[in-house]
Amino acid sequence: MLKIKNLCKKFGEKVIFEDFNFQANKGEFVTILGGNGAGKSTLFNLISGTLFPDSGEILIDGIDVSFMPEHKRAKFIGRVFQDPLKGSSPNLTVEENIALAASKNVKNNLRLATNRQNSELFKEKLSPLNLGMENRFNDKAGDLSGGQRQVLAIFMAMICQPKILLLDEHTAALDPKSQEKILDLTEKITQNTEITTLMITHNMTIVERFNENVVTLG
């Protein structure tokens, strides 16, 4: 569950949030709308810790994360960016990327990152999604198409079962066909879970498709 209380954030003289309150329950899917400069990305940056609030509180499952460093709160949060290239490491293979995302909360760092057992486990999780990704495990992530890289990014964001999933216009940079595929995938993985999902979009057809809960900023 995500709870934001009395959040304030200014950039110079420009006030982005003033006494902003917001709550999203477990398993809820919230679409966030708003013009450029309305603070959509700022909100995501505040939640994930790349920015800190001027005042106010951000609570994830009751834990105050307002000033927790990004890498510490990352275990609660999965984030997918607009740019598909931002979500994975191009020189590592698909499998290595997934293994890296899966070991986010694991302590023993000097074990081999990939092994057959994990590999089977990843494939098992991937195959019901019908993405064909399991046949490209040994390819470099940099060799995937934009759409496939976004699929990989979403899968990586979800593999550790975060409490909150942040989708930052995650289909905006894709062609219509890939967009459709990514939206299908988004639906599949967010239904019937306990994950709270926040999605930023400018696209009204996407808003209608997920029209459970719409918040407009600005």
Binding site: S48, T50, E70, H71, K72, A74, K75, I77, R79, L85, K86, G87, S88, S89, P90, N91, L92, E96, N97, A99, L100, A101, S103, K104, N105, V106, N108, N109, L110, R111, L112, A113, T114, M156
Partner: peptide, 28 residues
């Protein structure tokens, strides 16, 4: 061998895409 461990892989990914590593909770 080191570059195939979790730590080694994390170092390679940090050089490759630091933002992604931060989003995945790595102390880059």
């Amino acid at each position: 061998l080191f570059f195939k461990t979790r730590l080694g892989l994390a170092i390679r990914a940090t050089g490759d895409n630091e933002q992604m590593m931060k989003a995945h909770g790595a102390n880059t």
